[in-house]
Design a protein around this nucleic acid. Sequence first.
DNA 1: GATGAATGAGTATTCATTCAT
DNA 2: TATGAATGAATACTCATTCAT
Lengths: 209, 209, 209, 209
Amino acid sequence: MGIQERKQRERERRRQQIAVAAKKIFSVKGFNKTTMEDIAREAELSAGTLYLYYKNKNELFASLSLRVLKFMNIRLEKVTKEPDQSPEQKVMSLKGAFYDVYEFDPLIVINIFHLQSSEILKNLSPDLLSQIKVLSQSSIALISSIFKEGIAQNKFIDRHPVALADIIWGIFSGIVLWEESKRIIDDKKEYLKQTLDIAFEIFAKGIKK
Amino acid sequence: MGIQERKQRERERRRQQIAVAAKKIFSVKGFNKTTMEDIAREAELSAGTLYLYYKNKNELFASLSLRVLKFMNIRLEKVTKEPDQSPEQKVMSLKGAFYDVYEFDPLIVINIFHLQSSEILKNLSPDLLSQIKVLSQSSIALISSIFKEGIAQNKFIDRHPVALADIIWGIFSGIVLWEESKRIIDDKKEYLKQTLDIAFEIFAKGIKK
Amino acid sequence: MGIQERKQRERERRRQQIAVAAKKIFSVKGFNKTTMEDIAREAELSAGTLYLYYKNKNELFASLSLRVLKFMNIRLEKVTKEPDQSPEQKVMSLKGAFYDVYEFDPLIVINIFHLQSSEILKNLSPDLLSQIKVLSQSSIALISSIFKEGIAQNKFIDRHPVALADIIWGIFSGIVLWEESKRIIDDKKEYLKQTLDIAFEIFAKGIKK
Amino acid sequence: MGIQERKQRERERRRQQIAVAAKKIFSVKGFNKTTMEDIAREAELSAGTLYLYYKNKNELFASLSLRVLKFMNIRLEKVTKEPDQSPEQKVMSLKGAFYDVYEFDPLIVINIFHLQSSEILKNLSPDLLSQIKVLSQSSIALISSIFKEGIAQNKFIDRHPVALADIIWGIFSGIVLWEESKRIIDDKKEYLKQTLDIAFEIFAKGIKK
DNA sequence: GATGAATGAGTATTCATTCAT
DNA sequence: TATGAATGAATACTCATTCAT
């Protein structure tokens, strides 16, 4: 391992260290109420150091989203590329994929959905925005490929596969947010998984021809 | 009409005036980038005056949500109380109700869903939080009554009616947010209505026994 | 006096109060080392209040320069418009005008000359920059009119009047700065007036035909 | 050449390398907007290394002034020590010397004059300040020696030779700054040389007895 | 009731400088 | 000698909120 490589590795470790701290604080306080100082304290670094690894607060936050989106892509790829699986089976596997993404980082997923279409998105560097765009589109493309297949096999109703992918994405994010919302308002315990189960069951039945 | 009552009416008029201005600005700038000064200017009042009618910025914002939630309740009540309508027909009428709510105030709806489970919610006065809770629960109750009816008539699959209501609510909010999100990332034109149409179609089919 | 007018007057008083404080601090610390907090403390106001009266630090500083430039203009106008004065006499009166400007606000004059062609100038609002431009040009125009007259009367050597104005302006600012500089380096007592006297004497003699 | 000496020489080379880079960046960005990182990058060194050769940013900047002042001294020495030249001729040669200094490093000359009597000067190490003092006084002494000679030969008006030196120095720096200033405000093309020519002509004539 | 002047707490970001390697 | 990662102090500017008039 060359010295270059070791430095690169060290740098990556620091980025991780910061990302972990940021995730923790953002999750608890939300984007606006989190200060760079908060994150620095959690990471046991100085605030200035954060800027050696991330251009600014926005990009730090966005990079967390990227991690989740990347994970989601990998997970979706696995589902869609599964051989010997019917489209119906793949749709049910989607549920597992979404679960996994949620459990990979529940609070960040919530934050992503919250902020995805908001002020933060508008202030990202073009490069980062482009990455998010690519990953989102890739996810949607992967999902829609399942529906395409099902429609081709005359198993699913003939609707635009991308629209179907948008719907399943919307169902997932909408239910996650809504359950979180109820948690705050009612202080109820969560029924997320059960609700998602039923939602997928209905969806699966509903798209059958 | 007593002098008390007249005063009360006058006061309500002012609150409306402020609410209208706030809605306009929040919609364009989002919560965090909107200043009280912005709203005051739009309402042709001074910033200080806003505080005579609303406790603070949070509550002003939340009161807008209340308006939408109230409207939603009225609209849902109309759907559920409709006589001579089968549960299946009522579910399709729900689509119309959600459309109406969205069109009643699209940007505020987006903002509500964004912020519903976020920082703002955590800082409301107990009273306001309670009102939101009541309205939300009432909406969910109205929706779930349709499913209850359908299940009782053996027309819908036998799942918890509240879960079904949560799902339909999640589908609506999730798709609205996701389409808004795509609009920012891809700068694509909107397919909201078409997507919602398909989603309801699938849902309606999926819950049938 | 209407209420409008009184408010306007009150506002002007505040601006003055801030300007006085700012002048004091800028003079001692220079532009970069002066903080808005410093000025606020001196003015017995909060830092935020400063921003109600001046857009930012740059504009606050620049407004001080404007005061001096305005005073200079008035003073130069008086010299040039003097009837029954030969061009030679007017040149010697110029000396008095420059003295007065210097004494009107010595430290700000120094700061102006320091910063006139520097970073600050590049960050002013177009409006303010334009005002400075107009005042500078007006001063130069006034001065050059004296030389024009003298040349027309065949009393001064035939050189471009604006160049002559630039020279006299350069002599004044250069000597002021240089004396200030020597004061810091050598901690010598000042010979500014004597030096300027001699400079004007030489200049006056040098431009005679 | 001993090893000591070689090391010394190597060290001097590095200082030069840094000085060249610093000059380039300071000239373009000015003192305050130039970062040590900027200079390090230009010098193809790390920021930390700069501190092995210069105590801090101030001293690095000041050392550039020293270079110019040293050059000026050499140039002035040449003028004053010129045999077979009358004082009048030497005064005109001064013009050439000032031109050369300006062309040796125009932007640094501007910066020097800007900052000469400012914040930076106040924060120099006593040693550096003393060097600047010595060089400045030496320059003034050289210039004034010309006037002394002229006065002794009864060719120049009998004024304090140091005052005359201050004046010629002030004329030079004042016109350089003022022309730079006009360039920024008016975006006019420069007339520096022509203006200086006329100024020297007037001065030369004005000091004649 | 209405105003709007004043406040002051809050914070992202920069950068000269240090120091372990 | 050279590095560059880390620091931490420093600061302009914003804005929700208050309160004397």
